[in-house]
Amino acid sequence: MKYLIVGLGNIGPDYHETRHNVGFMVLDALAKASNVVFSDKRYGFVGEMSIKGRQLLLLKPSTFMNLSGNAVRYYMQKEKIPLENVLIIADDLALPFGTLRLKPKGSDAGHNGLKHIADTLGTQNYARLRFGIGSDFSRGRQVDYVLSPFDAEDWQTMPARLETAGEIVKSFCLAGINITMNQFNKK
C-alpha cells in the first residue's frame, strides 16, 4: 500500500522555520528519525520510507503554498495513490500552538494551500493533520504572523510536538484515520 504524506510550506531561506512551514518541519522531523533523505524532484522535495509493509511518499511541494494542489495531484496520479491514502499536514491559526488535530475532511478555513488542494482535486474530502500555531497577532497582521518564526517559548516544546505529529502520520498509515483520531485528537 502506498501513502502520500504532504507537508505544506514555502521553499527558500526566507520561510525556513516560519509558522506557515510547520508542515515541512513535521516531514523533516519524521525523515530525520527514519534516516530518510529528500531529493529535489518535479513539483517538490520527495523522500520515501516504509513502515510495516506500507510505502510512504513524503512530499514537500516546491510550488509555494498557494499552488500546492499541483504537486499533490501530480504525485497521486504518478504513484497511483488513492485519495483515502493522502494526508496533508498544515498550520492552523485557529488552534493553540502545538495542538494537533486529525480530520478526514473539512473546509480550508482560509488556508490558501488547503484551498488550492481542494480546488485542484475537486473535493475537500481528504485527510489533514492540522498543527496549531496560535493566533497571537493584532488585527490585519495575520500574514506577518504566519510568515514569522516561532518564538523561544514555542521552540521549547516543538521537538515533542513534531515527534507526536510523526506518530500520528505513522498511525494514519498503519491503523487508519478513525483509530488515529480516537487515539490522538484527545491529547
Rank of each mutant, 00 (worst) to 15 (best):
M1Y: 12
Y3L: 03
Y3D: 11
L4I: 03
G7T: 06
G7K: 12
G9V: 06
G9P: 06
N10C: 04
I11S: 11
G12C: 08
P13W: 07
P13D: 15
T18L: 10
H20Q: 12
N21I: 08
F24A: 12
F24H: 09
F24D: 15
M25C: 05
M25A: 07
V26A: 09
L27A: 05
L27D: 03
A29K: 13
A29M: 07
A31S: 11
A31W: 05
S34M: 13
S34L: 11
V37D: 09
V37I: 13
V37S: 14
V37W: 03
F38R: 09
D40K: 15
D40F: 06
R42H: 12
R42E: 12
G44V: 03
V46A: 06
E48V: 03
E48Y: 02
I51R: 05
K52F: 00
G53Q: 02
R54F: 13
L59R: 05
P61A: 06
P61W: 05
P61I: 03
S62F: 05
F64Q: 11
F64N: 09
F64G: 10
F64Y: 15
M65E: 04
L67F: 13
S68K: 11
S68H: 12
G69A: 03
N70W: 01
V72M: 09
R73A: 10
Y74D: 12
M76C: 12
Q77C: 01
Q77V: 03
K78G: 05
E79A: 15
I81P: 15
E84S: 10
V86G: 01
L87H: 02
I89R: 06
A90Y: 08
D92S: 05
L93V: 15
A94P: 01
A94Q: 12
A94S: 15
L95H: 09
F97Q: 10
L100R: 09
L102H: 02
L102A: 07
G106M: 04
A109T: 07
A109W: 15
G110E: 04
H111L: 08
N112Y: 13
G113A: 11
L114Y: 07
K115D: 08
K115W: 06
D119R: 00
T120R: 07
G122A: 10
G122F: 06
N125R: 08
A127N: 06
A127E: 04
A127Y: 00
R128N: 06
L129G: 03
R130G: 06
R130L: 11
R130A: 04
G132P: 04
G132S: 10
G134M: 10
D136W: 02
F137G: 08
R139D: 12
R141D: 14
R141K: 15
Q142P: 02
V143A: 14
L147Y: 08
L147P: 08
P149Q: 11
F150T: 08
D151V: 14
Q156H: 13
L162V: 04
E163G: 02
T164L: 14
T164Q: 14
T164C: 09
A165R: 09
I168K: 03
V169L: 05
K170Y: 05
F172K: 00
F172E: 00
G176Y: 05
I177V: 07
N178W: 01
N178V: 00
I179V: 13
T180R: 00
T180Y: 01
N182H: 10
F184L: 00
K187V: 11
